[in-house]
């Protein structure tokens, strides 16, 4: 059982890396991976929200939607839960943890449109994970996404020092190419699990 959970976690972080294998969460990925600071701030917020929404969405799907026979509307339900959770977290942080709010509060509203969050909820339904497995899986996916964005941001920061780059390549173009090379190296993990 523990072995199983460990496998799910490792698979979610490395072999099924959200950014490099499933190509999820690319919008914030491209726009935020310009500096290491913003990337890690966004990462912390993402880990928190993804795990929390998986915790909430699993019981809603399996204990409410399935018994009622209304799985059809799970897109609507999931996205409302995610938007609501983000709003709630923002309000709680503003009230009780102003320091934390200052650190990654600005990234919270952006998370609603980070497709990794919704994708985790959809995948956990498709893969038919149990409650514990889903939470571990969600956490693993979030960790994998952060690893990806932090590596790309760090490389990109160093690249800023290089002067000679085609004008049109600057920004999103070069981030794509960096991610492509990294994705190639992440393919190496694919035989692991």
């Amino acid at each position: 059982m523990t072995m199983n959970l460990l496998l799910i976690f490792v698979a979610a972080v490395l072999t099924e890396n959200a950014a490099f294998t499933y190509l999820l969460g690319m919008c914030p990925f491209i726009s935020l991976s310009k500096s290491l600071r913003t990337a890690s701030g966004m990462g912390a917020a993402v880990i928190f929200v993804i795990t929390l929404t998986a915790l909430i969405n699993w019981p809603i799907y399996h204990l409410i939607l399935v018994p009622l026979g209304s799985e059809l509307i799970y897109y609507i339900v999931f996205i409302i839960v995610i938007a609501g959770t983000v709003q709630l977290v923002e309000m709680i942080m503003e009230k009780f943890f102003p320091v934390l709010q200052a650190a990654f509060g600005i990234f919270l509203p952006l998370i609603t449109v980070n497709c990794t969050v919704l994708a985790v909820s959809l995948f956990m339904v498709i893969k038919e994970y149990s409650y514990l497995q889903s939470v571990i899986y969600a956490f693993g996916i979030a960790v994998g996404w952060i690893i990806a964005i932090v590596i790309v941001a760090a490389i990109n920061e160093k690249l800023e020092l290089v002067g000679a780059m085609p004008k049109g390549m600057k920004g999103p173009g070069i981030i794509m190419v960096i991610s492509g090379i990294l994705a190639l190296s992440f393919l190496g993990f694919s035989g692991m699990v």
Binding site: T21, L23, P166, K167, G168, K170, A183, L187
Partner: peptide, 22 residues
């Protein structure tokens, strides 16, 4: 996945060079 990054990255490069957006 890597192919997706390379192709889209190159396309962005080409279109941005044409449109002059930097």
């Amino acid at each position: 996945a890597p192919g997706a990054f390379f192709v889209l990255g190159t396309l962005i490069w080409i279109t941005r060079t044409i449109s002059g957006q930097t």
